[in-house]
C-alpha cells in the first residue's frame, strides 16, 4: 500500500509543479506600486510623534465631554446635525455619516413599526411622479446619465414619512448594471457607514458643485461610490461607471 501511495505521491508532486508553472502571476510592477504606497503611508503615520496622537485624541474627548456636560441634549434640539467622519485604522477605512434632530428621534415603539413597514414594502419601486406626490421635498434628478441607462423606479425608504430618504434606480439595458442615486434630507434621522480595506479600494477627494465629495473605487468589483453632502441633503451615487462619468452624473443633479 505504501508503494502504491509512493507512486501517487510522485504523481501529485509532478502535477502540483505543472499547475504552479501554469499560474500567471499578476503584473509585478503594479503590486510593487501598491506595496510601496502602503509602506510610504505607514512611514508617514509612524512619523507623527506619539504625544501629538495623544493630544489629538485628548482634544476630541474634551470637546465631546464639554458638549455633553454644558449643552447636553440641547446640542441636538435646535440644530440639524450632520457629520461625515472618515477614519483609517490598520488599512481599514471607515466613512460614516449621521443626521439627527432631537425632535424627530423616533421612540422605540415607532422604530418597531417603521421596521415592520420597511419589511412590508421592501424593495417596492414606484414611479418618479408617485414619489414626488408622496414626499414633501423636491427629489433631485440627474440631468445626465449614460445613454444606455434608464430610470427603473424610485424606492422610498420610509413610506410613512414625507421626508423619507429615496433611491433612484437606473438600469443599464445592455449590461443590467444598476446606477443608484441615494438622497436623504438632513432633517431625517438616519445614518450610514462604509468600511473597507484600503488595499481593495482607493479614495479620492473630488468637488461636486462646490461641495467636497469622496469617491471610493473598489478594484475588485470595479464599483465606484461617490458621497457628498449639501446643507440640506446628503447624496450617495453608486455605479460601475468610470470616474468622469460618475462625477458628471453627480454634477448634473438638480440640487
Amino acid at each position: 500500500m505504501n508503494l502504491y501511495f509512493n507512486s501517487f505521491d510522485e504523481e501529485l508532486a509532478q502535477k502540483l509543479q505543472t499547475a504552479a508553472n501554469s499560474i500567471v502571476p499578476p503584473d509585478r510592477d503594479e503590486v510593487w506600486a501598491k506595496i510601496s504606497a502602503d509602506i510610504e503611508e505607514s512611514n508617514r503615520k509612524a512619523g507623527i510623534p506619539v504625544f501629538r496622537k495623544f493630544a489629538a485624541v485628548a482634544a476630541v474627548l474634551i470637546l465631546l465631554l464639554t458638549a455633553v456636560f454644558t449643552v447636553g441634549d440641547y446640542v441636538l434640539a435646535d440644530f440639524r446635525f450632520f457629520q461625515t467622519i472618515k477614519s483609517a485604522f490598520c488599512n481599514v477605512v471607515n466613512i460614516s455619516g449621521v443626521t439627527q434632530t432631537r425632535d424627530e428621534t423616533p421612540a422605540v415603539g415607532d422604530q418597531k413599526n417603521e421596521n415592520k413597514d420597511e419589511q412590508d414594502g421592501e424593495n417596492a419601486l414606484c414611479s418618479l411622479g408617485e414619489a414626488r406626490q408622496t414626499l414633501n421635498y423636491n427629489i433631485a434628478v440627474p440631468n445626465y446619465v449614460p445613454a444606455s441607462y434608464t430610470l427603473n423606479g424610485v424606492f422610498i425608504k420610509d413610506k410613512n414619512s414625507n421626508l423619507s430618504p429615496v433611491e433612484l434606480h437606473y438600469i443599464d439595458s445592455v449590461t443590467g448594471n444598476e446606477l443608484i442615486v441615494d438622497e436623504c434630507p438632513i432633517s431625517q434621522v438616519t445614518s450610514f457607514s462604509f468600511n473597507f480595506r484600503s488595499n481593495d479600494a482607493k479614495t479620492l477627494n473630488v468637488e461636486i458643485n462646490e461641495y467636497e465629495a469622496t469617491l471610493i473605487y473598489f478594484d475588485n468589483t470595479d464599483l465606484r461610490i461617490l458621497l457628498w453632502q449639501t446643507p440640506e441633503r446628503y447624496y450617495i451615487v453608486t455605479a460601475n461607471l468610470d470616474e468622469e462619468e460618475i462625477i458628471e452624473v453627480a454634477k448634473s443633479l438638480d440640487m
Partner: peptide, 15 residues
C-alpha cells in the same frame, strides 16, 4: 528581495 521571490510566493499562495 521582492523581484526574487514574488512570483514563487504568489504561486505557492495561489495553490
Amino acid at each position: 528581495l521582492f523581484d526574487t521571490y514574488f512570483d514563487r510566493v504568489y504561486c505557492s499562495t495561489c495553490l
